[in-house]
């Protein structure tokens, strides 16, 4: 058992990591599901390519931010080959810390008046 690292030591979080953690915030997911959700969430701007994704998942597991989930969905939706991932407690804390950091950044940007934001 390696010593637990404090959540702050993971900041700033790599963008990929953030997206993966965010996807797992609400529910457990399998790899493909994560890819799809990130794609939709960002309107196609961020695409997690498969090999990179699984590399990321491997690293996240090593760092104990995510883990394998025991819970399986209902039988008809399940695919035995897929593995489901979930956030660990540490993962949640790290996600929260990163979200807060990002919110602080956005607040700072907004505070700077005169910066027009482009409407999509």
């Amino acid at each position: 058992m390696t010593k637990a690292r404090p959540p702050e030591s993971f900041l700033p979080l790599k963008p990929h990591w953030f997206h993966v953690l965010l996807s797992l915030a609400d529910q457990d997911q399998h790899g493909y599901g994560i890819m799809q959700e990130v794609l939709e969430r960002t309107d196609g701007k961020v695409r997690l390519w498969p090999a990179t994704l699984y590399g990321t998942l491997k690293r996240l597991i090593e760092e104990e931010l995510i883990g394998e989930s025991r819970a399986r969905p209902a039988a008809e939706l399940d695919d035995a080959r897929r593995r489901y991932y979930r956030l660990t407690r540490l993962g949640r804390r790290v996600l929260a810390a990163e979200s807060e950091r990002l919110e602080d950044l956005v607040r700072a940007v907004r505070a700077k008046r005169g910066l027009a934001r482009k409407e999509a």
Binding site: G31, Y32, Q36, P50, K58, D79, R81, R83
Partner: peptide, 13 residues
């Protein structure tokens, strides 16, 4: 560990 999943995800996407 990840081989099968990876290939499955690629086939899906």
């Amino acid at each position: 560990v990840y081989g099968d999943e990876l290939l499955q995800a690629v086939e899906d996407g």
